[in-house]
Design a protein around this nucleic acid. Sequence first.
RNA 1: CGGGGUGUAGCGCAGCUUGGUUAGCGCGCUUGACUGGGGGUCAAGAGGUCGGGAGUUCGAAUCUCCCCACCCCGACCA
Length: 645
Amino acid sequence: MGASAPRARVTARVSSGALKWPPMTDTASALPFSTSRRGAVHRWSRTLIPTMRDAPADAELPSHIFLTRAGYIRKVGAGVYDYLPLAKRVLTKIETIIREELDAAGACEMLVPHIVPIELYAGTKRDIDYGDLLMRFTDRHGREAALGPTHEEIVTEMLKGSVNSYKQLPLNVYQIQTKFRDEFRPRAGLLRGREFIMKDAYSFHLTLEGEGGLNDTYDAMYTAYVNTFRRCRLDFSVVEAEAGPIGGSASHEFMVNCETGEDTIMVCPESGYAANVEKCEIGERAYAFDEGPVADLKTNHTPAMPGIELVAEHLGTTPDGMLKTIVMQPAGEVNADGNGGPRWVLAVVRGDHEVNEGKVRDAVGFAVEMADEKAARDAGFAIGYVSPRAATMIEGCILVIDPDASGLRADWATGSDKADHHDTGFNWTRDFAGELPASGSAGPDKQVQTGSVKVADIRNAISGDPSPRAAGSSLEARRGIEVGHIFKLGTKYSDAFEFSVLDAQQQRQPVIMGCYGIGVSRTMAACVEMSHDENGIIWPAPVAPYHALISLVKPEDEASQQACEQIARELSERGVDVLVDDRKERPGVKFKDADLIGIPVRVTIGPKTLEKGGAEVKHRREDGFGELVTIDDVAERVSVRLRDA
RNA sequence: CGGGGUGUAGCGCAGCUUGGUUAGCGCGCUUGACUGGGGGUCAAGAGGUCGGGAGUUCGAAUCUCCCCACCCCGACCA
């Protein structure tokens, strides 16, 4: 603002009543910086908190319902929300915690554009990997671009232009900004939006190990994340995870332990091992192929039955009595068609289990993907009705069997390798023409092979599976909300962008990268999921929009105003953020709203409390009136209550 | 992307089957009065392109067609 600009009025005149606002201390300092943080003091009547008695019909989860009802967020479109003043304050607090922890871990903040020219994806093919999830647009000149879902490309490109010596490494940069993903199905309010606030960090290294290596920074970031989520008072688990479409080698997810979460994680209560379902290993399981037949092989007509449930019912069995045979093929460039390599991979699991592509890849030693349906049909597979026998009838097949789908059961129901038919009474020993391995057991690091038949762990873990880390212990499934994810990326992006530096021996070395994300808006929602009751939100103090709420039962009462002003000033000086409910509403309305918006400590001032000698102080979790405290002692009392909030 | 569903006031809904006064109800909002510690009472008000377009009809929120938006389940997914 220029010197000639009219001076803004600091104190707006209050329409009635004589509250001076904001309460000024005599140190209205001229310093351009603050020596100690003074808490904000805001009036409810002068901010925007549109509370609602009813939640919108589409809100189902507590975080969605309460954030909407309490006036934090408002829906603009599918998966797109306004952040109103209360929400913005929470987001800022979460961001501040993140900044403090990341800065302490040696990262530095920057900002890159939301708009990513599509050519930047040329090297990494992420425009294809991300597919429709990428929010694309074309500008007036016909140039294609995307709104960034993350910014590996643009950051790598930026660093490439400014870093060319090993002496400039390691480097760890981060930003906090809005990200975009065109979700097929946004849902659950802030938990899965198409536009969301995310902190993303990228680190660059010459080496993996040693000082300044990726592992060092990865560990520092791991610690920073633990600190961050602890400071948000979240109950969370750190789980091992697959790197996913972002590519790379190792990663951990930070999952808030919450039943309403969308993600399933597997934990071993004995060893503490935790992993997401896709990544989770399963302990050793027995398999066998020596059970003799107990029933005749019979072919049944099963037309027009989508889903294994229906087929099982029709055959008089259940999904766990069926074999599911999935036809896969070598993925991408690994496709060995034409040079004698395997052309198909048949993965066999029990009907109630799910094939895990990553595990199949590990079992056969090359990447696989679902077979192209047309090509598979042309090769002779009766897609939808395939049995393990197809492996012996069609050229170039590798058969991989999950232990639970082995001959532990003497008669299986399975496809008949012809359309609209399923067999019952299938017995591995009698009905499979190929050679089968001897009985034994297979675990995560162990697979058994005979010719082109393997037995290996190739399915997603489920609750009750043996733990891979503690013999005799079982895995348990829990739900979680993913709020953080850290990856060791390796050289995927630096290779693609030819980002390399000269090392001390004047050798050109590709830069090794890590990347680290935190869902900021999702973290806010996770806090609400974790901490609420039937009346509304209960914020943990470190992320609460205000620490204390002063409810004026009778706002026009002068004595109440004076007490409020004193308390607000003293709290502010202590660094406590204060919201004063100065609305001319009935007490019942104010208390209901107070519970809804969830400020941790409430101070109630009214003629009656003053008559009794002070104000009432209570924590959001407590019912009723709270403790009576003299006005002079309120600030201290509130501070104490906040300390353990 | 498959299946199902919904669009009527800021929010929650009724009306549509069987077309026909001025499109209703609750909450919220405005004004006034009485009230005054857990969404109070009474009175008077404001607020609507009935998602959009086309059609049928003397007449459409209502029937037909097309489009759009949104939601749920599934599949997918940091």
